[in-house]
Every structure is written in C-alpha cells, then in structure tokens.
C-alpha cells in the first residue's frame, strides 16, 4: 500500500493525472422530475472519487447516466477522451467503464467462476475463451474468491457476493470502476475488508468512482468528494473541504442523517 492511498482528506498526487471520465452538464428528467441537473466533474487517472449526498439526491441516477442505463436529457460524457454520451452500455464497457451494482446481481445459474468469465470474455472485444477463463481465475484469487469458484452465487455470503460483483466488473479490464454503495449491508469487520479491496483496485491502476453513505468510509477512501443535493452538485473538494462547507452541513442536517453517521 502506498502512502498516498491511506491519507484521508489530502489530495493524492494521483488526482493530477490524465482525465479518465468527464461529465459536462449532465441532466436527466423523468417527466417533470429533474433527477439530475447540470452535473459536471472530472475524474482523474488513479483517483478515488466519492459521490455523496442525502437520500434522493440523484446519486444512483447519476451512476446510471455514467454507465449508460439512462440517456441524459442534456449534457455530454467523455470516457478516456472519447465522447460516449450516445454509446450504449456495452460500448461504454468496451471503452473502459466497469460497474458493480448496489444490489448484487450475479447470474444465478452460473458458478462464481463462470460469472467472472463473462466479464473477462466480453469486457473487451476479441477475447478468447481459454484466456478469459484463466483471467477469471486470477481475479478470483485476487479478490479472495478462489476457494468458492465452483459455488453458485446464492451460496455466497453478502460480502462474498460483493467481492464477486467487483471481481466481475474488474474482469472487463476497466479504466474506471463505478461502485454503487458496496458497503451497504456489511458488518463493520466486513466493511474493513471491502475498503481494503477498493484500495487494492486503485493500486492496480484502476480509477474508482463510488457512491457511499457511510462517512468514515468516504473519509478513509476518497481522494476527492462530489456532494450532491436535489440533483445538483453542491460542492466538490477534499473530504475536509466539503465537510467544512456550511451548505453541505445544512443539506445533511435537513435530512436528519447527520454527517457523523
């Protein structure tokens, strides 16, 4: 582990790197509801970026815009320097975007190893099956799932399921990994393991963008934080900067969640 990854609240040198993801004025309306409004941010190479905000702030909608589940009503999205706004999910995956879902979604009739093989096989064009199987094995070892390779996904614990979710996304060989509340539902000890897992992901050269509710996790992991409220970006900066921002404090107080959760 490098020093940079463990220091919470300070800008890691990595964030000075090339940009991997850039959102320009992303908006999404559902009928009259403005779920996401004019969101802009830049995500740099090797950076761990957290998106936080009270419930209903539009975080998951934003993630769905990034991964291509929704098309934005306005705005552009650039991935690795390419405009991918009009690209479908699979093309964004090929261009280097990986995603792990908040509610784990394993393929239920496949083994753990087969689940990861899908990512390894189709994440980038032109992969061959034997090599994909090998890479899946390597990822299972890296994420501590090798002993469970033959199990069906429903035989795993929640933490293992989350590891599978991450392993499968990593198998697509992404440049950026989107994580949707990976800590949700985990016990404190398990959350520590998950934090270590995310750090390991960044060390392997993958930039991470994650949504999180648990503030200590954000403090420990994030190089930079984007705070959302009511669909808009309220503040951006280091953990220390945004938590000192009075607008952020009041947004959280207003929802009774509290920043010290």
């Amino acid at each position: 582990m490098t020093a940079a990854t463990t220091i919470g609240g300070t800008l890691s040198p990595a964030s000075q790197g090339a940009e991997v993801l850039r959102a320009e004025g992303l908006s999404k309306r559902f009928g009259g509801l403005k779920a996401v409004q004019d969101v802009s941010f830049t995500h740099h190479q090797g950076e761990i970026l957290a998106v936080i905000g009270p419930n209903g702030a539009g975080k998951t909608t934003l993630l769905n815009l990034l991964s291509g589940v929704y098309r934005p009503s306005a705005g552009r999205l650039h991935l690795m320097g390419r405009d991918v706004t009009d690209q479908p999910m699979e093309a964004r995956c090929h261009a280097g975007l990986g995603r792990a879902f908040q509610i784990v979604r394993p393929f239920p009739e496949m083994t753990v190893h087969e689940n990861v093989t899908v990512g390894a096989l189709f994440g980038k064009p032109g992969q061959r099956l034997p090599e994909a199987r090998e890479r899946a094995w390597a990822l299972l070892e890296r994420t501590g799932l090798a002993a469970h390779a033959d199990k069906a996904a429903h035989e795993l614990t929640l933490l293992q399921d989350k590891r599978l979710e991450v392993a499968r996304a990593l198998a697509t060989n992404p440049s950026v990994l989107l994580l949707d509340e990976v800590m949700a539902g985990l016990r404190p000890g398990e959350a520590q393991e998950a934090v270590a897992l995310v750090r390991g992901v960044r060390e392997s050269g993958v930039s991470v963008l994650f949504i999180e509710h648990i503030m200590p996790v954000v403090r420990d992991l994030a190089d930079r934080v984007v705070v959302m409220d009511q669909g808009q970006v309220l503040a951006q900066g280091t953990y220390r900067e945004v938590t000192a921002d009075p607008r952020v404090v009041s947004a959280y107080l207003g929802t009774e969640e509290g920043l010290q959760a």
């Binding site: 979604r105 990512g119 096989l121 189709f122 980038k124």
Partner: peptide, 25 residues
C-alpha cells in the same frame, strides 16, 4: 462449448448486467 454459451446464458439470466459486462445483446 464456446463463448456463445456465456453470452446467451448471461443475457438470459440478467440482460442489463450482461450489457454492463460488455455483452452485445
């Protein structure tokens, strides 16, 4: 026995997840 098995099975068991993993549906 080929990659088609993984593509078909993934689409059947979770279309959106399959797409996120790069399967061209």
């Amino acid at each position: 026995l080929t990659r088609l098995h993984f593509a078909f099975a993934a689409i059947r068991q979770g279309e959106e997840t399959a797409r996120v993993l790069g399967v061209s549906i």
